[in-house]
Amino acid sequence: MTFSQDILTRAQPIMDTIMVHPFVKGIATGNVPDDILNYYVEQDEHYLKDYLQVTALTVTKTNDTNDIARLLETAQFISNESKAHEIMLNITGHHVENWRRSPDTQRYTDHMYTSAYHGTYADALAVLLPCAWSYGVIGRELVAQGANNDANPLKEWIEIYSPQANDEIDYNAWRFDALERAVANLNDSQKEQVIQTFLKSLEMEWRFWEAAWNQTQWRFDF
């Protein structure tokens, strides 16, 4: 079993839980309350800015020119994320107001920065990977279910994240290949740390959906 196969096997229970989350199921039917979509977009605006900065930190951890080029290419996908936000905001009529970061958004981005600053190149790749990978799974599975039908107001959102539907290059294959190469010279303890970094990010993905669904906020003003 390769490292990637091991990490994905261990990640499957979390991914299975994400796929049955009421928010994701609501996307499949095109039926998500406006306030939940607005919360999600507001928090994702914060997250994506940090995602770009952590990607930049990851670039500094490798001398592989091909990896650097690919990391910069994948960062460009953020423009597609903006389109995904527009699809949701066109449904709700909301305009981004830069709401305060929620506790779960802060927790997730803190995890990303810590891993990128203090970890290995493999840790930096692993902390970023679950976002792109999990959305790719969501897009693929929802297309397979026929959720991207013309009656679904979130049809375009689904197709943005499905390589089969939008003919985009599937960068997740490269991400896992890069991760395989990055862990090649690590010892077993270091490899386990990389796996834990990945799995924590993937749970944070679940928590991000959950926070939006429940409109989670800080308990106190400060």
Score class of each variant (00 low, 15 high):
Leu179Cys: 07
Glu210Pro: 02
Thr105Glu: 09
Met112Val: 02
Glu203Cys: 04
Asp188Thr: 12
His85Ile: 08
Gln53Thr: 13
Ile91Asn: 01
Thr2Met: 08
Thr58Asp: 00
Phe198Leu: 08
Val20Glu: 06
Gln43Asp: 03
Leu186Arg: 00
Ser134Thr: 10
Ile7Asn: 00
Gln106Leu: 12
Thr216Pro: 02
Arg175Leu: 14
Glu97Tyr: 06
Glu205Asn: 09
Thr58His: 05
Ile138Met: 13
Ala116Ile: 08
Asn98Met: 15
Pro33Phe: 10
Phe222Arg: 12
Asp177Glu: 15
Met1Val: 07
Val41Ile: 12
Lys25His: 03
Gly139Ser: 06
Leu128Asp: 00
Ile18Met: 06
Ser79Phe: 12
Asn63Ser: 14
Val24Gly: 00
Gln53Ser: 14
Ala165Leu: 06
Asn172Gln: 13
Leu71Met: 10
Ala126Met: 06
Ser82Trp: 09
Gln5Asp: 14
Asn166Ala: 07
Tyr51Cys: 00
Met19His: 06
Ala165Ile: 04
Asp167Lys: 08
Leu125Arg: 04
Gln106Lys: 12
Leu154Ala: 01
Ala69Arg: 15
Phe3Glu: 11
Glu180Arg: 06
Phe222Gly: 09
Met19Phe: 05
Gln43Ile: 01
Phe222Ala: 13
Tyr135Ala: 05
Val183Tyr: 00
Ile27Ala: 02
Leu37Cys: 13
Asp104Ile: 10
Ile27Ser: 00
Leu8Cys: 09
Leu8Ile: 10
Tyr121Lys: 04
Trp209Val: 02
Thr120Lys: 03
Leu48Ala: 12
Asn98Arg: 14
Glu156Leu: 09
Lys49Pro: 02
Ile68Cys: 04
Leu57Cys: 11
Trp213Gly: 07
Gly136Cys: 08
Ala144His: 05
Leu48Thr: 08
Arg107Pro: 00
Ile78Ala: 07
Ala11Cys: 10
Ile138Glu: 01
Pro153Gly: 07
Leu179Tyr: 03
Glu156Asp: 14
Gln12Gly: 07
Asp221Lys: 10
Thr55Val: 10
Gly119Lys: 03
Leu202Cys: 04
His94Leu: 06
Asn152Glu: 08
Ile160Thr: 09
Arg70Ile: 14
Tyr113Met: 10
Ala28Glu: 08
Trp174His: 09
Tyr171Thr: 13
Trp174Phe: 15
Ala84Cys: 12
Asn98Pro: 03
Asp188Ile: 03
Ser162Asp: 07
Ser189Lys: 15
Tyr40Ser: 03
Glu141His: 11
Asn90Ser: 14
Ala69Thr: 14
Ile91Ser: 01
Asn80Leu: 15
Ala173Arg: 05
Val183Phe: 05
Thr216Leu: 12
Asn185Glu: 15
